[in-house]
């Protein structure tokens, strides 16, 4: 029993970076823009979070800076895909390639160093609940913030005027435009905020999870998040489910490794990726077309008014 609780708690921790990335991408995609640069954004977020934490001594300043850098790099994608109407798939890939390269380029001097990072803050009262307390409420603050973000995002998309407008922009930009909404402005803000949140997911990895910086440390988590957005049918709560499922698989295989299993490590390391494919296939086959949640109608298509 104790082992199960440990694994579940570890699942939450290792699922958190993926959760942030998935939530960030949901915001971005709800506006109709596809951002495939998650892997690059997470790496830049991880490096920024780590380096600023180390230099300033403040992990929270590191995380704030990761958000800013994530939003800043996403601006490139926003400009290319919204203003210049470029191919969003290729622009996102460019972002991943650039972010991967730039993080290794600037991160070289930080390789092999560590930081104290974010500490554990058990929630008074809640952490004493049997089982659930240890699984959910015995983590660092960034984990609790992610719970709040899930709830906030759900409320925002369903119940607020701005959330409704954002969905309109992503589904039928022409109609949103006719309603007097600025399609470009909504999209820019969504891409920037979304990118910032993705980068916070990266920062969680280096500032709270491993507390060190390693080249390519995201190991495909950004791409797993892209798949999870589809799994979640753009629904924040389902995103959390998916992220913890993946966190669970990672925690489980690490546990097996530590226990010295006879299964070769590389085969264990494949599990999350295999699971991603399996989940994606499963969800694509039986995807219901929800009205509220589901793929934004004009995801990936540039919008512009024909003038003159």
């Amino acid at each position: 029993m104790d082992v199960v609780i440990t694994i579940l708690a570890a699942a939450v921790r290792s699922g958190t970076p993926i959760l942030y990335a998935t939530l960030g991408e949901i915001i971005t995609e709800k506006s109709g823009i596809l951002n495939l640069g998650l892997e690059g954004l997470m790496l830049m977020g991880a490096l920024t979070g780590f380096s600023v934490s180390q230099l300033s001594g403040s992990p929270w300043l590191g995380i704030a800076c990761a958000f800013i850098v994530g939003a800043g790099i996403s601006l490139i994608h926003a400009f290319l895909s919204i203003t210049l109407r470029a191919n969003q798939v290729v622009s996102g890939l460019a972002l991943t390639i650039f972010g991967t390269g730039a993080s290794s380029f600037f991160g070289q001097r930080f390789v092999g160093t560590t930081i104290p990072g974010l500490g554990r803050v058990p929630v008074p009262g809640l952490s004493d609940i049997p089982i659930l307390g240890r699984v959910l409420f015995n983590h660092d603050l960034l984990v609790y913030i992610s719970y709040g973000l899930v709830a906030f995002l759900y409320w925002f998309l369903v119940s607020t005027r701005t959330g409704l407008n954002l969905r309109a922009v992503g589904d039928t930009p022409r109609a949103a435009d006719a309603m007097g909404l600025s399609v470009s402005r909504y999209r820019y803000i969504a891409v920037l905020v979304g990118g910032g949140i993705v980068a916070v997911g990266g920062a969680y990895l280096s500032v709270a999870y491993t507390r060190m910086w390693t080249e390519l440390m995201t190991a495909g988590r950004g791409w797993i998040a892209v798949a999870l957005v589809i799994f979640a049918i753009w629904h924040p709560a389902r995103a959390a489910m998916g992220a913890y499922l993946f966190g669970g698989v990672v925690a489980f295989q690490l546990r097996l490794q530590a226990a010295g299993t006879s299964i070769p490590v590389p085969l264990l390391m494949m599990l999350p990726y295999l699971l991603t494919i399996a989940v994606l296939v499963f969800i694509t086959i039986r995807q219901g077309k929800g009205i509220l949640f589901g793929a934004p109608g004009s995801l990936g298509q540039p919008y512009f008014r024909e003038e003159g």
């Binding site: 290319l80 191919n87 290729v90 460019a94 390639i97 650039f98 390269g101 730039a102 290794s104 080249e215």
Partner: peptide, 17 residues
């Protein structure tokens, strides 16, 4: 060595633009 990859990303950005 990542300078190569970073430059490639930049080239792709400008080409797209």
């Amino acid at each position: 060595l990542a300078s190569t990859q970073m430059l490639q990303g930049l080239i792709l950005f400008f080409i797209l633009g």
